[in-house]
C-alpha cells in the first residue's frame, strides 16, 4: 500500500520563510556589529544564528517526508542543494568559531575568514535560488540592480564620507589661503611626513613617532606608548573625526615644525596616508 503524497500546510511554507528571515536577520546583525564597540550585540547575534540553524535541523528531523521542512527533498534542483549545504555549513562554522573565539582568541582570524566566506555563500545562494525559481528574466533584473549597487559600494569601501569631508574642508581652506591652489599631492605629503627638522631634536619628524613605514604601528618617542598605524590601508579608523585630526595637526605641527601647518600641508599629509 502506498501512502498518499504528503500535502504540506501553508504554515510549513511560512515556517521556511520565517526561518530564512530569522537566519538572515541574525547574520546581518552579526555582520554589522563585528566591531569592538558593539561586541555584546555581536555575540548575541552569533548565538542567535547558531540557535536558529539548530532549531531548523530539529524541525527537519521531525518533519514528515514531503514537507518543505524535511531534510531530504528529492525534487530539489541539485545546484540549489549544493548551495544550501555550503551556505549553511559556512554560516554555522562562522557562528560556532565566533562563539569559540570568545574564549580562545586565536580562533579570531579563522572566524573572520569564515564570516567573509559565508557572506559570499549567501550571495551565491540568492543567485542560485533566483535562477532556480524565477528563471533568467528575473536574474537579469537582479543582476542589473547588483551591478548598480556594486558600482556604488566599491568606492564606498575605500572611502569614508567623514574622511572625505575632512579633506574637502581643508581643500576649501587651501583655496582661500592660496589663490593658486591646484589640489593636494601625496608626494608633497610624503616629503612632509619624512622631512627632518631641528626645532625639537628628540622628535625630528612625523615619522619619528609614526615610523618610516606608516602601515606599521608607531611608538611615541617620549612616552613609549604604542601608536596604531596611520596609513588608512592598515587602519581604516584613521582621519574620520575632524575635531581630533585638527587638534593633532595643531599639536604635532607645533612640536615638530615649531609652527602650525597650512591647510595645503594638512591636505597633502592626509592624501599621502589615505593613498598609502
Amino acid at each position: 500500500m502506498s501512502a498518499a503524497p504528503y500535502k504540506p500546510s501553508r504554515w510549513e511554507f511560512q515556517g521556511v520563510r520565517l526561518w530564512h528571515a530569522a537566519l538572515l536577520g541574525g547574520f546581518v546583525i552579526a555582520w554589522v556589529t563585528g566591531d569592538e564597540d558593539t561586541y555584546a550585540m555581536h555575540l548575541f547575534a552569533g548565538w542567535w544564528v547558531a540557535a536558529v540553524v539548530t532549531l531548523r535541523l530539529v524541525a527537519a528531523l521531525l518533519a514528515p517526508a514531503g514537507s518543505p521542512l524535511a531534510l531530504k527533498r528529492p525534487n530539489r534542483n541539485q545546484m540549489l542543494t549544493v548551495s544550501i549545504l555550503s551556505t549553511l555549513a559556512l554560516t554555522v562554522l562562522a557562528a560556532f568559531s565566533g562563539i569559540a573565539a570568545d574564549v580562545a582568541p586565536f580562533l579570531e582570524d579563522p572566524h573572520e575568514a569564515l564570516a567573509v566566506m559565508s557572506l559570499w555563500a549567501i550571495g551565491l545562494h540568492v543567485l542560485v535560488a533566483v535562477i532556480v525559481f524565477k528563471g533568467r528574466q528575473w536574474l537579469r533584473r537582479v543582476s542589473a540592480a547588483l551591478v548598480v549597487v556594486a558600482l556604488g559600494a566599491v568606492p564606498a569601501l575605500a572611502a569614508d564620507p567623514a574622511r572625505d569631508a575632512i579633506v574637502a574642508a581643508y581643500a576649501a581652506q587651501a583655496k582661500q589661503q592660496d589663490a593658486g591652489f591646484s589640489g593636494f599631492s601625496a608626494a608633497r605629503g610624503e616629503a612632509l611626513y619624512r622631512l627632518r627638522h631641528t626645532v625639537n631634536p628628540e622628535i625630528a619628524s612625523c615619522s619619528t613617532c609614526h615610523t618610516d613605514d606608516p602601515t606599521k604601528p608607531g611608538r611615541h618617542a617620549k612616552t613609549g606608548r604604542v601608536i596604531e598605524p596611520v596609513a588608512v590601508s592598515a587602519n581604516p579608523k584613521r582621519f574620520v573625526e575632524a575635531d581630533k585630526v585638527e587638534e593633532r595637526f595643531m599639536r604635532d605641527c607645533k612640536s615638530i615644525f615649531g609652527r602650525v601647518c597650512t591647510a595645503t600641508e594638512k591636505g597633502d599629509y592626509l592624501t599621502f596616508l589615505i593613498n598609502r
Binding site: G34, D35, E36, Y39, H42, A101, D102, V103, P105, E108
Partner: peptide, 10 residues
C-alpha cells in the same frame, strides 16, 4: 575585537 575579548577574560 581581539583586545576586547582579551580584556574581558583578563
Amino acid at each position: 575585537m581581539k583586545r576586547l575579548i582579551l580584556a574581558t577574560i583578563l
